[in-house]
Nucleic acid binder design. Structure first.
Lengths: 217, 217
DNA sequence: TTTTTTGTTAAGATTTTGTTAAGATTTATT
DNA sequence: AATAAATCTTAACAAAATCTTAACAAAAAA
């Protein structure tokens, strides 16, 4: 079930949106100010944000800039092209003007959820990487990953079907670098495979000889 | 440089859009019917599609359903919510109504290109080299290439109809070089041909006597 | 025909990867 | 601050994949 954060200070509009989403079985988080929104995002894993622009405290634009990797649909009374363009360019994924049509809102939400990186790419077959807790789910089993293992796994899952070069992975796991340490990387990969193998026979991490690693298709 | 396919039968609207995009330095492909669009997509790597709905031949909705993995922005005179919702749900990524605002169009294009992965595919007839995953597709069959085989294949597919000299290929496969090893290259070519022959009777790699190799026309 | 270049094959050499365990380092706890 | 626990790195070796070599057959040019 997808979780949507509604950021809107007007109580009546807020509850209208909430009602629409509940009918579609989305999980809802409610924020009535910009600062409240950011607080909620720190503690919760959110799949999509519906964002009003005119907010008390932190305004909408500032929130857009602060957020990465979560799709944002702006819902605003501002109909000027200027406002739309600005929001889209600084990071919003879509922009709907009030009053909005219920079905169009729902369709545009689905587009974002369908394409969203978070859901598409940190989940793969039986694997799901929980980004907040550094836990990798294999089916229903939870595996604790170390910091390095998490970094590797995240990079791999963000690039499903694509080779992630050894160089790239070495950048992630060692900041010192120069001739980062391939032996160490090999051990991390081996440990990751071991942890995953505890709960499944599938081999998810594939080596691309001489180049790097990728998640097996 | 990103490549955008414009699918629009009305010549004047078509050229307006084309002009806007050219000013922003996008590469353009033009199609004036649905069937033409699909033809162009077979032969070209496209990053984004701008699609009119009312087209001669195949209509817009049918095209949307046929296309995966390339973002689509519908530009249509149909303003009914019903049409919008339908297009979005069957696979379009955004929907703009005519007359559209130039800047809003450009902003929404940027949104789509921002999120899209660059998937460089080198395609020729039945061959498709997936450069991100280091895989060669022969029809529906996937072939794993070694690092050297991949380097050779990439060079050949980047220069279709042109001879790639032995010298050039030797540079690719051995950094030491000087009198790089032609015998070794011959073996690699032979192995490549073998791998491809597993799945097709066509001989794609042609020898150019005394000079090098090329992809057969 | 003779010479040169290309194609194929198989064996051996080389490179890269996988695994394990011990020692070093970092992080947490008392 | 000292100790314990967790994590990371190093090193050594085994296993696997890839590359090169060499020998010979086939094809093309001279």
């Amino acid at each position: 079930m997808k979780k949507i954060l509604i950021v809107e200070d007007d109580a009546s509009i807020h509850s209208i949106i909430e009602e629409i989403l509940k009918q579609e079985n989305y999980a809802i988080l409610n924020a009535y100010s910009g600062t409240e929104a950011l607080m909620l995002l720190e503690k919760n894993q959110v799949d999509l944000i519906l964002l009003d622009l005119m907010l008390p405290g932190l305004n909408g634009e500032e929130i857009i800039k602060k957020i990465n990797h979560i799709p944002i649909i702006v819902i605003s009374a501002k109909i000027a092209t200027e406002d739309k363009v600005n929001c889209l360019l600084i990071g919003a994924n879509d922009y709907i003007t009030k009053p909005f049509d219920k079905n169009e809102l729902l369709a545009r939400i689905k587009v974002q959820l369908r394409d969203s990186k978070i859901n598409l790419e940190l989940t793969y077959k039986n694997l799901k990487l929980l980004t907040n807790s550094h836990i990798l789910m294999v089916g229903d089993h939870r595996i604790n990953l170390t910091k390095t293992e998490y970094a590797i796994m995240k990079q791999l899952l963000l690039n499903i079907n694509q080779v992630v070069t050894k160089t790239k992975l070495l950048e992630l796991i060692s900041l010192d670098t120069d001739d980062g340490n391939e032996e160490s990387l090999r051990v991390h990969i081996s440990n990751l495979r071991n942890k995953i193998r505890q709960y499944t026979n599938d081999d998810y991490i594939e080596s691309v000889w001489g180049v790097g690693f990728k998640i097996k298709e």
